[in-house]
Design a protein around this nucleic acid. Structure first.
Lengths: 334, 334
DNA sequence: CGTTGATGTGGTACCGGTTCCCTAAGGGAA
DNA sequence: TTCCCTTAGGGAACCGGTACCACATCAACG
């Protein structure tokens, strides 16, 4: 392995000068720079990132902690993070927290030991003391969806409240007259807000009753069982706003199995914008989060922080888009 | 930040001794060890992984290069890799190659600079010269699915040939009498073998004709268009073995849209065992690869190599399992 | 009783960069 | 002419570990 001193020797300068050339800082004569670059070429020299990390305390690595890469929402996010990170010369470490606080904590430990430059948290278990610890270790981080209560952080999220309203209004527009909602775990802020958006929009209708709101677990099976329960409870429901796409797919399955026609008898609208909604038949209308943009923005913010830019600790709320598809088509005869 | 020398000072020994305690190598008196551990406790000392990496050339990091994390096959693989790596104290870097050889090469460069302990390649673009380079840099690696021609590597894969046979036999069993195949890109070995397994099994049937084999791109849309073409070409096909699950889902969509009943008119069998096949209605029969096991085994092999165990460069072929589901149900009236 | 080997510990030279400090020359301002 | 600033570049400490080597005991063995 060739080192910076080999390059220095070959080009007849000191290691300091080579370092200056490499990092483009300090004064270096044009000719000297040229000589050094020649030597680097000839020796096929590549700086050792570990040594650099030790000396400069910057490793060019960021970490992405997510609940479970297996959940179809996250791969696209991960892809965005990796793309952007890579374009800035960073490498991405990833970890699954399974939404367990202690796993997350142990990641933080490991990442600290490894001089990771910054962390993106996308699970919703980040605790206040974690934030304090990160701060005291001066590890920059960005949170997706939600900051721990009482802590100002850089947060990237999408407008769930308005998204939920859009979903319900869309169902109303296309003719639904009794709309139910299947919501996700209420300890997840996103789920809470979507529920709120639903409630707000429908509470003044005559048909509204609280039993139209059915709990689900944000997973496929949760959508399936919630739909079953809902249709038994309210056989006359003709529109369902489902808290996330995964459950929406489950809902669709159950409805199809029960012989209920979608969208003719019941219209279904999901939330998230994952590709799974396009894989099923009929394709499911969804309120799409700009998943890639969320990841990209989070990464850009993080890299700014890493570079010492004083990024304001605010919530960046991105807009969502309703994507009308067959599961809420108005007139199927056309 | 507390260093090993701080610990040494507090416990009244030298840094060497602390290092020995930390790494459990060399001779250390019980009492001394105890003192050192006390000091570590008191100072909340955690060894700096970067410094350790520089000194020992082992960073406790492995990398996973895959084509695209967004492709539903890979998250589960990634999950397995991360789980196993973590259980051995390793951290996982990940990168998307988009199946582009140059991207892959540039990852190798970066990973080399970072003293990554080993790499798992799961894209099929790894070239022979890459392998040579890795070898000369003594970077252990494991390949999924396929080794570059002419290079003995540790390969982990599943038995695609037998899987394809199983799929076709299953379709025959359940009553299909004219079975087509939609195959994937032939530069991918997996796709090639599945095609071979199909051809082998059906070539002696009277109904067999080469136009029953239709090319696809291993993506959803490819499955959709291939199915359309196929059904126009051979309206009497009553069973389709699709080269991967993603395309199978596309096939199902097209069939449903064309008003063709699955499985009553046409039975569909996919390959891979991704969860997507359970999300659609009817659920799709598939030849499931043990995806998690593939990832787990690859990681274990890699870690053995990293630890200097002389792992034989052989192909580890795991068995696949046919999972019968509604898309090939025999008698729908029961 | 001298030798040998196991046990225990410290000293120090790395690993391969970065960075601060120092020297030095040249040119413009006072 | 003197002083100072800019440009240029070398030397060496340092980042925080690891690992080799030297040295010191002490018990066992021939």
């Amino acid at each position: 392995m060739t080192t910076i001193r080999d390059v220095a020797k070959l080009s007849g300068v000191s290691a300091s000068t080579v370092s200056r050339v490499l990092n483009k800082n300090g004064y270096v004569n044009q000719e000297t720079e040229h000589k050094v670059k020649q030597a680097i070429q000839k020796l096929q020299y590549e700086p050792n990132a570990v040594a650099r990390g030790l000396a400069s305390k910057k490793t060019g690595t960021i970490a992405l902690i997510l609940p479970n890469i297996t959940n179809p929402f996250f791969p696209e996010l991960a892809r965005a993070v990796e793309d952007v990170a890579r374009s800035y010369g960073y490498t991405v470490l990833f970890g699954n927290s399974d939404d367990q606080g202690d796993k997350e904590k142990s990641y933080i430990e490991v990442l600290k030991q490894r001089y990771v430059d910054g962390i993106i948290f996308s699970s919703h278990t980040l605790q206040r003391d974690d934030v304090v610890r990160l701060r005291s270790n001066k590890i920059p981080f960005v949170v997706l969806d939600r900051a721990p209560v009482g802590e100002a952080c850089s947060v990237v999220r999408s407008n769930n409240l308005e998204g939920a309203r859009m979903a319900v209004r869309h169902l109303l527009d296309r003719g639904s007259r009794k709309i139910a909602h299947i919501y996700g775990p209420q300890e997840i802020l996103t789920a809470k807000e979507r529920l709120k958006g639903y409630e707000e929009t429908v509470k003044d209708f005559g048909w509204y009753t609280p039993t139209l709101m059915v709990p689900g677990n944000f997973r496929l099976d949760g959508g399936m069982s919630a739909a079953k329960e809902l249709m038994q409870r309210h056989p006359d429901v003709d529109g369902i706003f489902v808290g996330n796409d995964l459950m929406a797919v489950g809902v669709l399955k159950t409805l199809l199995r029960m012989g209920i026609k979608v969208p003719e008898q019941v219209a279904v609208c999901g939330f998230d914008g994952i590709h799974l909604t396009e894989a099923v038949e009929p394709e499911i209308t969804t309120v799409a989060q700009p998943i890639y943009e969320l990841g990209a923005l989070a990464t850009k913010l993080l890299i700014q922080k890493v570079n010492g830019v004083d990024v304001e600790n605010k919530v960046h709320e991105l807009e969502v888009t309703l994507i009308p598809r067959d599961s809420t088509r108005k007139d199927t005869s056309l």
